[in-house]
């Protein structure tokens, strides 16, 4: 009897079949996934990438909650037309503190990976409240309610602690100062901003328009949008040395 006829052992015994499947899948996994953890070409440390400030993190949570990723990707692919339109292609390191990442693949609207700093805060607020007020033909929904909803950041320290467990380098100090940092990032002229920038290099403080509400969900979302893709200085990034 040749070896080919031994398959009856697998086909007639479910435990043997299960173990067999596990072994085959594990080999596939080892060959395809494991190298990603040690191959130099898939791991890149990039100057400037930093964890989100507490306000940006809260804004990111709103981005996820509102499902902005259903219409917007955050991944400039390394293709000519994309680089021409959106700027430098995305680096894996730029989303290394994203849990979960927002790469997406659906582009009803434009890619947002480098939208930070492209428009003013006023434009972002006006556009979120009513996209048609600035882009007449836009089919993006209105998110006017974000300007009237107070940001609930009671759990921001817990979120940061969980992210720290997942490998985001939030220090105990960053976590302890989360509330202070949220207020600092909305007080552009306050001395506390210096502290914030020390903890989170290049963080930008934004004027809050909250009025009676101290911190709105819109404030947080705008702070998040305005830092997207803006932390890496591509003048200092060596394209030639990082071919992969």
């Amino acid at each position: 009897m040749s070896l080919w006829n031994k398959h009856a052992i697998f086909e007639k015994n479910s435990i043997v079949l299960t173990v067999g499947i596990l072994v085959v899948v594990a080999i596939g996994g080892l060959v395809e996934i494991l190298p990603l953890f040690y191959l130099k070409s898939t791991i890149e440390t990039v100057e400037g990438v930093r964890p989100y400030t507490p306000l940006e993190l809260a804004g990111r949570d709103i981005y996820v909650r509102e499902g902005c990723y259903l219409c917007h990707s955050q991944m400039i692919r390394s293709l000519r037309d994309e680089v021409e339109r959106y700027g430098h292609y995305s680096l894996a390191a730029e989303s290394k503190y994203d849990h979960p990442f927002q790469w997406g693949s659906k582009r009803t609207g434009p890619d947002l990976a480098r939208v930070g700093g492209k428009y003013s805060d006023d434009w972002q607020r006006g556009h979120l409240s009513n996209p048609r007020s600035v882009v007449p033909g836009s089919i993006m929904p209105r998110y006017a309610f974000l300007a009237e909803s107070a940001l609930d950041y009671r759990h921001i320290r817990d979120s940061m602690s969980v992210l720290a467990l997942e490998g985001v380098p939030y220090t105990p100090e960053m976590i302890a100062k989360a509330d202070v940092d949220i207020k600092a990032q909305l007080s552009p002229d306050d001395p506390s901003v210096t502290d914030l920038v020390k903890r989170y290099p290049k963080a930008v403080a934004h004027a809050s328009l909250g009025g009676d509400i101290a911190v709105t969900e819109q404030d947080a979302l705008v702070a998040y949008l305005q830092m997207l893709g803006a932390t890496v200085d591509f003048k200092l990034y060596d394209n030639k040395a990082n071919l992969r």
Partner: peptide, 14 residues
């Protein structure tokens, strides 16, 4: 071939 090299070559062509 590298994907980043390819896009840089495309941009240089452009």
């Amino acid at each position: 071939w590298t994907s980043r090299g390819a896009v840089q070559a495309d941009l240089a062509d452009l």
